[in-house]
Design a protein around this nucleic acid. Structure first.
Lengths: 237, 237
DNA sequence: GTCTATAACACGATAGAC
DNA sequence: GTCTATCGTGTTATAGAC
């Protein structure tokens, strides 16, 4: 896309990489709209015109940031899923293992100061504020991953119907994203609320809690719906 | 709740309400930064100067939108929690009931076209992109609610340690937010991914799935951490 | 490749007529 | 209360010197 012959870029371009990195961090902290190219290039120690030279526009820069930094997280989860499917010779992977394959790469990513944490923040933003471009990008990149996990989970919890697996995969993903968001050093909401009871810097603690919670959730029978009535209170519209 | 004499505004002001409503919707669809006062007033059928007349600035308008439209969701959950605590004479509320008190008001809100859905989107945005003003506002308004739920959940699941209750309350909240986001008519991600298997318009189905998943998660014993090792694959940084 | 200078435009805010 | 007109600022993007 940029220049060079083959199509991609040659990695020895210092300025381009510095801008790309700065863009990731500024975007993640200020949002795509509020972040300005001036902030980004300033943080990168580059000139404003550089972004127009290496990328074409702000939109193209956004796209490039997503494409560049999204890959590691996806590959991490694919690798982990591969591993735990290989470990299951009978084609019935262990439920805990599959869930850990989903959870661990994301949790570890969230503590990576070199871009992982910023990428997680960006992911949250694209979910909260869908733009045509980011939405299409993420669905292209992430949909296959979702289906792989849903398949694995369906095999690991065969008593569950396929719709239930879909629902619960989403619940699981939401649980992860929530806790990563609330563990963010920027806000530390969970640590503050729990008065320090929850150590949001302890990867293994987070993973252990998540795996325990989620796998129990997946083992719950699909409910045939008969409720006690007590909590049936209408929400004010 | 708005006001009358005490200092605020008299509710029979048409233009002000129209601007406030338009602001909610435009903010929720475009984000606080991208949304312009021109868009908002145009959508409200009002003049640009109106926002400066009734509110003081864009920032003040944001604040007012949050304060006005945040209340129903909070009150809904408080009312539901009150009800299920009253139903438990022995001070040990039913776990499913507490969880439904958390879940039902939010799910129902998300299908309210009159502002609830927009409010949910806004909530997601403030979580994904914390600004000083919204962060302080939400923590003032929502922290007490969190503590009430954590207390109730701790009584409903007495075998769980308090840290575990905090972790899992967050997991639960994340599960809800995720499924509400993916059920949003704007994106319909879950319906698309599941090829229609999940009916994201069916309140009761969503609630049933959520309650089953979350309560099972809360019933899982706090894990004493011994893992099988299979899925222990390092994520690429 | 990098920089300065600037074009072209949109924003929030407000003054002042009605 | 409502409107028009405009000010001052900051934005992306680019032309052109180095």
């Amino acid at each position: 896309m940029a220049s060079r012959d083959g199509g991609q870029k040659s990695t020895d371009n210092d300025t381009r990489d510095r801008v790309l990195n700065a863009a990731l961090h500024v975007f993640s902290e200020r949002g795509f709209d509020a972040a300005t190219l001036r902030e980004i290039t300033e943080a990168a120690g580059a000139n404003i015109a550089a972004v127009n030279y290496y990328f074409r526009s702000k939109d193209a820069l956004i796209r490039e940031v997503l494409e560049t930094f999204t890959r590691p997280g996806i590959e991490g989860r694919i690798a982990a899923l591969d591993a735990c499917e290989r470990a299951a010779a009978d084609g019935r992977p262990d439920l805990e293992d599959v869930i850990e394959a989903l959870v661990r790469p994301m949790v570890q990513l969230s503590h990576d100061r070199r871009g992982g944490r910023a990428m997680i923040r960006l992911l949250m933003q694209t979910r909260a504020l869908p733009r045509p471009q980011t939405v299409s990008f993420f669905s292209e990149e992430l949909d296959p991953l979702v289906h792989r996990f849903v398949d694995a989970l369906a095999r690991a919890a065969p008593e569950l119907g396929r719709p239930a697996v879909f629902w619960r995969y989403n619940f699981a993903l939401g649980a992860v994203m929530q806790v990563l968001t609330d563990s963010d050093p920027k806000t530390r909401r969970l640590a503050r609320l729990s008065d320090g009871l929850c150590d949001t810097d302890d990867d293994e603690a987070i993973i252990a809690q998540l795996v325990a919670f989620i796998s129990a959730g997946f083992r719950a029978p699909s409910r045939t719906r008969v409720r006690s009535s007590a909590a049936r209170v209408r929400a004010p519209a």
